[in-house]
């Protein structure tokens, strides 16, 4: 199962890089979203998986009979997803604002803060 997740994470990263290399801000954002999901999956897999059972102790702290996943990476993930969600929402709002300010989302043409000619 971990192998599948590792491959999936790799495929997601590849797609993310492809999207992020395009000159469009919105596609870049989608790429970033894919990349953060790829990273999340990688961390998830790094904590080992137990199929079909949550990584919780039984009644009275009894250990289950099978190997257990480490639940800390899942907690870290949850934090990371929440933070990532906030950042992504902000980036999306910024994109909308950029679209209103410039009328396009081509990053190559966003040169207001750095004019093409040196200086003036």
């Amino acid at each position: 199962m971990e192998t599948v997740l590792a491959i999936l994470s790799g495929v997601l990263s590849a797609c993310a890089v492809w999207l992020m290399l395009s000159g469009n801000l919105l596609r870049f954002l989608f790429g970033l979203l894919l990349l953060s999901n790829a990273v999340n999956l990688a961390i998830f897999a790094a904590g080992r998986l137990t199929e079909g059972a949550p990584p919780l102790l039984g009644q009275g702290g009894a250990l289950p009979g099978h190997q257990m996943a480490n639940s800390l990476p899942q907690a870290l993930l949850l934090t990371a997803i929440v933070i990532g969600f906030g950042l992504f929402a902000f980036a999306l709002a910024l994109t909308i604002r950029a679209y209103r300010a410039f009328g396009h989302l081509e990053v190559d043409r966003m040169r207001l803060a750095e004019p093409e000619e040196g200086g003036k």
């Binding site: 906030g86 929402a89 902000f90 999306l92 709002a93 909308i96 604002r97 209103r100």
Partner: peptide, 14 residues
């Protein structure tokens, strides 16, 4: 508060 700020702001700008 956080989610509603975002949702309202996005709804209003669109």
């Amino acid at each position: 508060g956080g989610i509603l700020t975002l949702i309202f702001a996005l709804e209003e700008t669109l």
